[in-house]
Amino acid sequence: MNHLIQLRHTLHQFPEVALEESQTARRILEFFTPLRPDLVIENLGGTGLAFVFKGKNQGKRILFRCELDALPIEDLKMSDHQSQISGKGHLCGHDGHMTIICGLGDKLSKKRPDSGEIVLLFQPAEETGDGAKAILEDPRFEEIRPDAAFALHNLPGYPLYQVVMRKGTFAAGSTGMTIILTGKTSHSAHPESGINPAQALAQLIQKLPELPKKLSGFALLTLIHSELGSLAFGTSAGKASLSMTLRAFDQNDLEKLIDLVKETARVEAEKAGLKIDFGFVESFAVSKNDPKLYPIVENAGKKLGLSIIEKPEPFRWSEDFGLFSQICPSFLFGLGAGEDCPQLHEGTYDFPDELIETGIGMFWEILKN
């Protein structure tokens, strides 16, 4: 495993954030060149890469996906492979996920599947929710459209090597949403001459977090930022914005929550005589696991002698692998990164090298099935 561990450390040292992963993609391409895959697709959905290993006989096309991007967060853990790029770090473990898929490619180069095709996909921009969408919208995706897709994510807080599984929703869908209220500025001595959105903003701050209660399934609205006018004491504000993150375990519930927010905001804007606009960023579909793939993943874990648990509730965080579950049977599972491992997106997090071999083993057993 030494060459794979070294690869992981190199990727960790030179992180690139979403849509900037060109050097990371180059390193992955250099790794795969001597492995002689049957098909290589570069610049897929931007900086993405796909490597295809074909069997001798016709069969299903199975896709294994990992992520290229890092986070715009400082790497605070002192190590011989600490990030060399200021303000950026692989603090979600995508360096480890990439290394696992590289290890899988290494094995496939020595033993092709008996039938069908194996696609190893390195996807850009997972952290922003843009990558999977860009991959699926690239016309060349039709060359690798799978019959089934698999992915894993390391999970701090769970025992090292433990396989964490769920049928149905594995991770929530979410979206960042901003409401923009536009009125009319005026002198602060004559606020009646303008249209100040302050009261409408105050009403929305009170009312919007209560909207998820109107839905039957789990939903959550978290206010993250608000802005009113500017720091000019002689001016009555004429513009305001309110930003929030919406989450739900069901895609329909997420869409309903968005509609409820829009409806509530429009009512308050109309009362105050304000113009209203909406903006959306970082939209993630619900990650939904196909129950027919559950026993395949479960058997892989059993064959490796790993502890396996069924998580009673989906994770509240989001993963844009959810879009793959809308185009083919898909399955996302977790691998425990250690109960004392710092949480994802924390400055002191570092992917455990011990998981590389386990991740390769899980994917290898899955493709054999």
Rank of each mutant, 00 (worst) to 15 (best):
R266F: 09
P146M: 04
G301H: 10
T245C: 05
I100Q: 12
G176K: 10
L344E: 04
F233M: 10
I356S: 06
S330L: 09
K256H: 05
L104I: 00
H190C: 05
F333P: 02
V119G: 03
A134G: 08
M165Q: 08
G87R: 01
Q23A: 15
D277S: 08
I180W: 07
G336I: 04
R140W: 01
V163A: 15
T235Q: 15
E357K: 06
L274D: 05
L323V: 00
D130G: 11
K292I: 04
T99Q: 15
Q13I: 00
T24N: 07
L121Y: 00
S79I: 01
K271H: 14
L7P: 00
S236N: 12
S236L: 12
K302N: 05
A151Y: 14
C328I: 09
D106H: 06
I180L: 08
C92E: 12
I276Y: 13
L257T: 04
Q326P: 02
E143W: 07
R26L: 11
R65A: 08
P37T: 03
F278Y: 11
H345R: 03
I356Y: 14
P329M: 13
R316Y: 10
E313W: 08
L160C: 00
G131V: 08
F32E: 02
G176S: 09
D138W: 09
G89T: 10
H97S: 09
A148H: 08
T33E: 09
T24F: 12
T178E: 12
I41Y: 14
I135A: 12
L335G: 14
E42P: 04
T128V: 12
L63V: 06
E346V: 00
Q123S: 10
D253W: 03
I28D: 03
L208Q: 10
E20P: 03
D106G: 00
I276N: 07
D75P: 11
F122Y: 08
E357I: 08
E270F: 03
A300L: 03
L160V: 02
L220R: 13
I360R: 12
A240G: 03
K262T: 11
A200H: 06
L19C: 03
H225A: 11
E313P: 01
V119R: 04
S230I: 04
P191K: 08
L39C: 11
F363S: 06
F331R: 08
F278D: 04
H345L: 02
K311A: 15
I5E: 10
E117V: 01
V163P: 11
H3M: 11
A269E: 06
D106F: 07
C66Y: 07
I356H: 11
L215Y: 13
E30N: 15
S318A: 10
W364L: 02
R61W: 09
I144G: 04
K60N: 09
M177A: 01
